[in-house]
């Protein structure tokens, strides 16, 4: 039974971070209607920013949050403004060329990181790295727990923003019905730019929170891109509440899969759930709850 709860706790803690990653993706997906295959790579960039801040300025990774998030916000804004929005006017046979653009961006970000930092594995070893505390016989990883609490806080802030501010309402409106939002006077071009920036900033926060736990190398983005869109489909495109459930579901499923099926099957568990949802529950968990 201890093993079960240990597995559950590990799954929930990482699920909280996954939720953060998924929320960024789902905002972009909802507003733009595309999948952002550079999502994990944006996180990788944030991780390198955090790494540099720690190595050269001895800035604690949790404080770097306030550096990495604005940096990535502006990177996201630039990407949307100069690379993705221009594609809206281009007539092509392939409607998914914005998706392909994100692939190109992903490759460029990864390779720039490799160019600057090489493929060497980096890590930020803080005083709390690898520390554990016990609660009722279950071990809690300190860094993971702190990251989880940050994730919860950020989620609350995001919800306040989306529900209570004009800008947030415009984003939600655009995500739900783009045409209607434009008719209501929403500047959709500006909204897409801000949304991509916001999505990038959210995934940046996940990067800063994960750095005391993960090793960092240029290719770390790719598995997270896959996770991000699994979460988004699980939760239902454009649904932030769905992304939270999607993130937690994926985290727990991976953790359970690792313990009860085998550690090497962990990734497969997530993807199979994803395919099942895609086939039998298109629209994701959102459909069940009608949130």
């Amino acid at each position: 039974m201890t093993v079960f709860f240990q597995t559950l706790v590990s799954g929930i803690l990482i699920g909280g971070i996954y939720a953060l990653i998924g929320m960024g993706m789902t905002l972009i997906m909802g507003v733009m209607g595309i999948i952002n295959l550079a999502h994990g790579q944006l996180m990788m960039v944030a991780m390198y920013i955090t790494f540099v801040a720690y190595t050269f300025f001895h800035l604690d990774p949790y404080l770097s949050l306030f550096v990495a998030m604005p940096c990535l916000f502006f990177l996201g804004v630039a990407i949307q403004k100069f690379l993705l929005n221009p594609l809206m006017e281009v007539e092509t046979i392939i409607p998914q060329n914005q998706v392909l653009m994100t692939v190109g961006i992903a490759i460029v970000l990864t390779e720039i990181a490799r160019f600057i930092f090489s493929s060497t594995y980096r890590s930020v070893t803080t005083s709390y790295t690898g520390k554990v505390f016990f609660l009722g016989g279950i071990s809690f990883n300190v860094a993971m727990t702190v990251a989880f609490l940050f994730a919860v806080t950020l989620t609350i802030v995001l919800f306040w923003f989306l529900l209570k501010t004009d800008l947030g309402r415009s984003i939600r409106a655009t995500a739900q019905d783009k045409e209607a939002a434009i008719l209501m006077g929403v500047n959709s071009r500006r909204i897409t730019i801000i949304t991509y920036g916001l999505g990038a900033a959210l995934v940046a926060s996940a990067g800063s929170l994960l750095i005391p736990i993960f090793y960092l190398f240029p290719d770390i983005g790719r598995p997270f891109t896959t996770k991000a869109f699994v979460i988004t489909i699980l939760g239902g495109m454009g649904s932030t509440v769905g992304a939270i459930f999607g993130g937690l579901t994926l985290g727990i499923a991976e953790s359970m899969g690792a313990t009860y099926i085998g550690m090497s099957y962990k990734e497969m568990v997530g993807l199979i759930i994803f395919l099942l949802v895609l086939i039998f529950l298109p629209g994701g968990l959102k459909r069940l709850t009608k949130v």
């Binding site: 201890t2 240990q6 590990s10 990482i14 071990s139 990883n141």
Partner: peptide
């Protein structure tokens, strides 16, 4: 006998080591 590949994800070792402990 347990193989692992996600060595860069420390938190995955926690449930594993809990099983070893048991």
């Amino acid at each position: 006998v347990e193989g692992y590949e996600g060595w860069f994800r420390a938190f995955d070792f926690q449930p594993l080591l809990m099983r070893v402990k048991q």
